[in-house]
Design a protein around this nucleic acid. Structure first.
Lengths: 209, 209
DNA sequence: GGATGTGAATCCGTTCACAGCT
DNA sequence: AGCTGTGAACGGATTCACATCC
């Protein structure tokens, strides 16, 4: 269809999953795949994969399937991760440290370029070549480095005010690890990660024994 | 409706979110709330909240709203988190350490009771009173402690085999942080957390500038 | 008056099934 | 023959709107 109209958000959310699956297939030495194979790997119907991709263009060959490298590149472009995004981490507790040091960002479109904390004992400390900076510098650094994406790993109590400050400084996408719903302007995107919520979701189905 | 029939999984997934919102309201000193107030806080329609809750019973009073403590307790019961679930963490890198030490589990129904790693340098090390154990002991410990839930924080390469072993030992719910789709029997529940996928989801909407 | 609980209506996403290309 | 791309059919989830009750 190649329509650039209004693509459902739920479709966008599956594209990163497709990217992951394609990476895995590359590791397995494959160069070509099909909607059926991808679907099998992900537990998704092949029709859904074809329909999802059809929102953006025609990436396959009938009778053959998809060239993995080609499809991968296309999806990267669609998601705008055919470049490297600068990311800030706020709150360098155990979780923030893990995020700041995580090696899995670099080859998937992101680089942590700033780390903030309010604890004087941590400020100035080195973190794999990154220096932890005072939270009071958030506005300044975000502006200077043109940071558009931030990960919030501070206690729930402070998450909203940190969010406010980041947004004021120009951040437009937030990955929030604090277990609260953030209040942000409509032009800011937020995604939530709450491991406990995931666990609670699953316990519903567990039979105690 | 109070029907115990087949409740949509998507509804179950929202219950933890409602719990979070209720907690927040308690912090704000409220004792009663309404579907409207909850919806406002979460960015969800009030009708959806009422419909969701109606699957499980009638928890509100017409004209008044919901008694927060009562609704909270009911949701806890529905999700089976009116008890404490023992959880294992496998892979004590930065992320696994953060999970094992995270203080936010205890008051929401979970307790980390075992931590595994395959690195001899880490085995035997203390982690806030928890001793890191060899991954070779997974089966034994999971069985002994009747663990039904595990969090996987090992490199993608090893996630599938760790998953297999956990399932064989009796684990029935997995929270997987490795960026791969796990292959598990149908009676095992899996939830995925992939921060990069969330970031990639958001970059779609960012206009570069 | 005010807020719930719920059938009915609507909207949206998934699946079906097949024409069309290789 | 094999697999894509897609309109049509289907099913499920959300919203509407109102009767009901405090």
């Amino acid at each position: 269809m190649t329509a650039v109209n209004k693509i459902p958000d739920i479709v966008i959310g599956r594209l990163p999953v497709y990217l992951r699956a394609l990476s895995q297939l590359v590791v397995e030495g494959k160069t070509v795949t099909s909607s059926h194979e991808l679907g099998q790997q992900l537990g998704i119907s092949s029709a859904q994969i074809r329909k999802d991709l059809s929102h953006f263009g025609e990436f396959g060959k009938q009778g053959t399937g998809y060239q993995i490298t080609h499809l991968y590149a296309q999806l990267q472009q669609i998601l705008q991760i055919d470049r490297e995004w600068a990311v800030a981490v706020v709150g360098i507790g155990d979780l923030g440290r893990a995020l700041a040091r995580y090696g899995g960002f670099s080859d998937r479109g992101f680089r942590v370029v700033a780390a903030f904390d309010s604890d004087p004992a941590k400020i100035g400390t080195d973190l794999d070549g990154l220096t932890i900076q005072s939270s009071t510098l958030i506005a300044e650094v975000v502006r200077a480095k043109q940071i558009r994406i931030a990960m919030i790993a501070v206690p729930a109590m402070h998450a909203q005010s940190v969010s406010d400050e980041l947004v004021r400084a120009g951040v437009r996408a937030l990955l929030n690890y604090a277990p609260i719903t953030l209040n942000v302007p409509s032009y800011v995107h937020v995604q939530y990660i709450d491991p406990v919520a995931h666990l609670q979701h699953m316990t519903y189905y567990l039979d105690m024994s």
